[in-house]
Simulated scan of single mutants.
Amino acid sequence: MSCINTILETIQFLVLFIYYYFEAFILLFFPTHKNVAGEIVLITGAANGIGREIAIHFAPLGVKLVLWDIDEEGNKETIRLAKINGAKEMYAYRCDCSNRKEVYETADLVRQEVGDVTILVNDAAVPSVKYFIDTPNLDLERTMDVNIMAHFWTCKAFLPAMIARNHGHLISISSGAGLVGVTKVSDYSASKFAVVGFLESIAFELQATGKKGVKTTIVFLSYVKTQFTGRLKIK
Score class of each variant (00 low, 15 high):
189 S>A: 15
165 R>A: 13
218 I>N: 08
191 S>Y: 07
25 F>D: 08
226 T>K: 01
107 A>D: 14
3 C>G: 02
100 R>I: 01
25 F>N: 08
207 Q>M: 06
16 L>Y: 06
215 K>V: 06
233 K>D: 13
153 W>R: 05
61 L>A: 02
79 I>N: 01
87 A>F: 03
51 G>D: 10
189 S>N: 07
122 N>D: 09
189 S>H: 08
150 A>N: 13
53 E>P: 11
133 I>D: 11
39 E>V: 04
59 A>M: 05
227 Q>E: 11
222 S>N: 11
51 G>L: 07
189 S>I: 04
93 Y>C: 05
150 A>V: 07
37 A>R: 12
73 E>S: 14
87 A>T: 02
116 D>C: 04
154 T>F: 12
93 Y>S: 00
203 A>H: 14
44 T>L: 03
10 T>A: 15
143 T>I: 14
55 A>N: 12
65 L>H: 08
193 F>G: 13
194 A>L: 11
167 H>M: 10
184 K>P: 00
62 G>V: 09
30 F>K: 11
93 Y>W: 02
85 N>K: 09
166 N>F: 08
222 S>D: 14
38 G>E: 05
123 D>W: 03
108 D>T: 15
3 C>W: 08
176 G>D: 02
35 N>R: 10
39 E>R: 15
58 F>A: 02
67 L>V: 05
35 N>F: 05
